[in-house]
Design a protein around this nucleic acid. Sequence first.
DNA 1: CCATTTAGATACATACGTGTATGTATCCAA
DNA 2: TTGGATACATACACGTATGTATCTAAATGG
Lengths: 218, 218
Amino acid sequence: MGQDHVARRTKEDAARTREELLDAAEEVFLERGVSRPSLCDIAARAGLTRGAIYVHFENKADLFSALLDRFLLPAEALSSWNPEAGTPLQRLHAACLYLMRETAEDAHWRRMLDIVFHKCEKLEENGAIVQRLRASRSGTMAHMEGLLREAIAAGDAPSDLDVGLAIELLHACVVGTMSQWLVHARDVDLAAHAAPFADALVHMVLTAPSLRRAADAG
Amino acid sequence: MGQDHVARRTKEDAARTREELLDAAEEVFLERGVSRPSLCDIAARAGLTRGAIYVHFENKADLFSALLDRFLLPAEALSSWNPEAGTPLQRLHAACLYLMRETAEDAHWRRMLDIVFHKCEKLEENGAIVQRLRASRSGTMAHMEGLLREAIAAGDAPSDLDVGLAIELLHACVVGTMSQWLVHARDVDLAAHAAPFADALVHMVLTAPSLRRAADAG
DNA sequence: CCATTTAGATACATACGTGTATGTATCCAA
DNA sequence: TTGGATACATACACGTATGTATCTAAATGG
């Protein structure tokens, strides 16, 4: 605002403007999607010009990729999140609850998730998002599957459970719930619903006859 | 290609080219997203030029809207689908199964759903998609909620069930499953999973303690 | 059989986003 | 203090998408 020609300040200042550009991109992408806004729009939101963007990033795709880098996708969040409390079954329940509760309570995570789920087009040619989403899915599912197998070994889950089937459904339900919450965040009390939903989903995995191996429809 | 100046044919021919343009748009949108391809790309896919598009549609948004008109979103599909067989609970189960099985088996529905879920940006300013998605959600949820209340009245579901909570979860799980299937259609045998998933979800609604009114975590 | 209408192609003006090249002022090192 | 490096702004050239206007030929109505 007050500064006319702000040229090179200190290195930390440069890093700070980089963050401000990412913040601006996050805002603009959330409001108007990833494809439509120009780099000029994003820079203007940060009170800068396109020149600043090209200093820190190669182009819009690189900027978006950097924005994703700043954001721990669920897979990495799950891995980095302390998973060392309680029985495997309790930890599976905690993982589901964590994902949903974080969606309900962490505004920043919610905004980024909203961009990834609803404000950008998932195209093979894009690479950045698609690959991360694949990695997130397989990472989360592997994590859950490991816990569920441990739970079975510990006798906390039925031994004839079809683990692959159960995890596929559980993961889809958790992700679907998060996705729906993002769209209708104002209609629903997310925080209050997270716990009963996690309970119900784990209960389903443990008790649904149709998820047992060699099961017929109930 | 072979035709130099193909001018006005018969009225049915014109309607046919309109459909061909919509087909082309569906293909192109699925492959490359909604925002990036130009009207020229879409017309070329149909073997035509942009002029043909402007004859039948006002602009790209109108074309996309027409594409959605041609496609029955789940809500309308559910309403138009014969819902008159069996008890309310069986019909609730059939509704979930229908949505998932249709996703697994109807290639055209799957393509359109993939576009709507993953290949376009859901923005307020867009209107066309966002409004339809809202309508679809509320329509489907209302349908399901009615059936579940009937099931409770018939004694097929617990009377202290928190219907709103249960329907919110059930809907999110069904939509989430459909969405995940679209992304990883090649990794999973959709048709084989639809039935056990529908069974498990209904089982969850009927038996999960956390979905009862005044329930505490189980 | 002629006039009108219309499906679709083509041409053109305009706007806009991108990438790059250049300018400028500050910071840092010698 | 001076010269290079760097952060950011500005200017320009280019490609491209859009909307509209014009052109054509065929079909329809009288």
